[in-house]
Amino acid sequence: MSTTTQDRVLTPSDVEQLNFSQTVGLVNEPNMCSGGAGTIRAVLRAVPGLGAGDRILEVGSNTGFSVLEMASNTKCEVHGIDIEESSVRFSRDKASALGLDNAHFAVGDGTRIDFPDAHFDLLFASNVTSFIPDRTRAIDEYHRVLKRFGVLAAVPIFYHRRPPERLLAEVEQAIGAPLPRFSRADWEEMFNRPGAELFFSEEFEYLDLSSAQIEAYVASVLDQPCNDHLQADVKQAAGRRLHYFYTLFNENLGYARYAILLYRKSQPTEFPILHASAPVAGTAQYR
């Protein structure tokens, strides 16, 4: 038995050989940023005043989760670019179904962003930069397309404890790409550029998942109406593959954390502060 996806015909045996990106592309897993909608809301709260006439770009929009969240919570013109054409098609269809006329998707590369200089008020790059070989060029592009006083929002995943080499090797095989061994400090330095200011940062840890939680999430992914076309045996194979990946990533994320990092381009002043301060732990609140 076989099934037709957007681009090819797959059997259950084929599905068992897919890497993570290929599997989530098959079943249109939301593949949201770390923290999901909570992260998007935190970014939008930290960049007040965004509205009609402003522009947002997400690099690595995948199946459109973050772009659609931002488009539904602002009146901004929100764009997403991704290298996978099938993900772009799916995102466009979803935006159309939701009636979000301010959400736009295109095939694009983070190292060659097809927009003019100083075009966007906010650029969102979740953890996509981890998978771009020429990270320096990509981040230069992020800053290039930002307006003066525009904001670069990055949500990188980093290790705060060293995982075993066995686990690292298995995760690299699962994602089909080398896995960066970066710390939070490494990422903070990497995203910075002269004249930019890291004005907001917050760190999060991942909570351990039970097998039942993973099974429930896999079921919710497979039960999406967009997967009704899949043959039953192919869907079952995809479910087994997803369960394997999520279990593996759950172990890996026990050694990792993520951070929301916001950089403002062209800080208004570089004059040194006299009376330095430090945050009081546990007192941060959003109102």
Rank of each mutant, 00 (worst) to 15 (best):
V59N: 08
H79P: 01
H119M: 11
N73H: 14
L98I: 09
R148W: 12
F20L: 11
R55C: 08
V155C: 05
G38A: 14
G25A: 13
D134C: 10
E58A: 02
A97C: 04
P30D: 14
E69N: 08
R92P: 05
N28L: 14
N73Y: 09
L57Q: 05
F131E: 09
V128K: 02
N102Q: 12
E69C: 11
A125V: 15
D109T: 09
D101V: 09
I132V: 15
F131C: 05
F115S: 07
Y142N: 06
A138Q: 09
R137V: 13
R89E: 14
D82S: 04
I40Q: 08
H119C: 13
G53T: 02
D101R: 12
A71V: 10
V27D: 05
D93R: 15
I40A: 14
K94Q: 14
R148L: 13
F124I: 10
G150L: 06
R92Y: 05
T111N: 06
S126L: 03
A106R: 13
F105M: 07
V47A: 00
N102R: 03
G51Q: 01
V78P: 00
L68N: 05
G108W: 06
G99T: 07
D82G: 03
V145Y: 02
E58T: 02
R41Q: 12
G53W: 00
